[in-house]
């Protein structure tokens, strides 16, 4: 069994109005050091043992549904889950 942590973020070239609003607010609070805020999504998947290559599977899931690659990028980490 594997746990897959997927991070979906807006592409660099795409404006992130939510991130801009949050950054504006942080600046108003006095946190001038903050130079950029980008808001994304975090998903956790648990993948059961299978014949399929996990990387290929996760890429397929991300490309088909979890991310819209017109405006979003994704990356992921895979952790081995030791059964209790």
């Amino acid at each position: 069994m594997k746990k897959v942590k997927v991070y979906v973020t807006l592409r660099e070239s795409v404006l992130d109005p939510q991130g801009s609003a949050v950054m504006g607010s942080l600046h108003k609070m006095g946190y001038d050091e903050v130079q950029d805020v980008r808001i994304g999504k975090y998903l956790e998947l648990v993948i059961g043992d299978s014949e399929r290559d996990v990387d290929a599977l996760v890429d397929e899931l991300c490309n088909r549904m979890l991310a819209n690659t017109v405006i979003e990028d994704y990356r992921y980490e895979i952790e081995e889950v030791v059964s209790q």
């Binding site: 795409v14 404006l15 109005p17 939510q18 609003a21 819209n68 017109v70 405006i71």
Partner: peptide, 17 residues
């Protein structure tokens, strides 16, 4: 329709949220 790829592009959050 855009998600399905029947039309190009994508609808994002309105700029003023």
């Amino acid at each position: 329709l855009t998600e399905a790829g029947l039309l190009p592009g994508m609808l994002m959050r309105n700029k003023d949220l």
